[in-house]
Amino acid sequence: MNTLPEANSTNSTNVSDEIACAIETKGVTKIYGSGNTEVVAMRDASMKVQRGEVVALLGPSGSGKSTFLTAVGLINPPTSGQVLIGGEMVLEGPVAHTNLRTFRRNHIGFVFQKSNLIPFLTAVENVQIAMELAGESRGAARRRALELMEYLGVADRASNLPSALSGGQQQRVAVARSLANRPSVILADEPTAALDGERGRQVMDLFAKVAHEQGAGVIVVTHDHRSLDVFDTIFEMEDGLMHRAKKP
């Protein structure tokens, strides 16, 4: 695979020189409903992910993985606990310390089970839009989008609509978009679920590559036990409780 020309060399240096905390959660709890209908989806979840670290989050369906991901992704704030990103306190329980949408745009990249590309934009525009929303000029955003696509090996499909791309290509474009604004955190929710084994492996390798080269902290929710060797750290969730697991 190619190397991104401006692959955040400072970040890479930082990653190698000093350990920077990409994301940290402290006692994050999410409760839905109240009284008799109260459901504890996640209890006291704590996790620390360094820059350049790739973390897997395993667990059966309904264990609270997605709830955790939406909480640290600033989409669905927790009931209690703290979320810090890049050392900055962002959420204290449901209380936001910053504009969550702007913070999300500038600091967090998302990749989902389905590629979730915008269907009316071409592949390169899907990457470009993330940068334009962050205030990048159209020309600069276009250039960097093409560089990212080159880096991820999908530059030849830049002008295709998502519907004309294979599942693997769509996921690569989604990864490119998640990298667009040089995020400190990338959150991926079962990104290989719709892919075959070989392509799934490629995508997992990709996360490791971007984490190490871009200096982002990556959390991947997955059921795919075949690729666990890619991850630096593994967490497991069950019945809303999170614990660190051993690497296989």
């Binding site: 949408r101 745009r105 500038n106 998302f110």
Partner: peptide, 8 residues
């Protein structure tokens, strides 16, 4: 999706 990626 646009909201998720931070579109105002």
């Amino acid at each position: 999706l646009l909201k998720l990626i931070g579109a105002p």
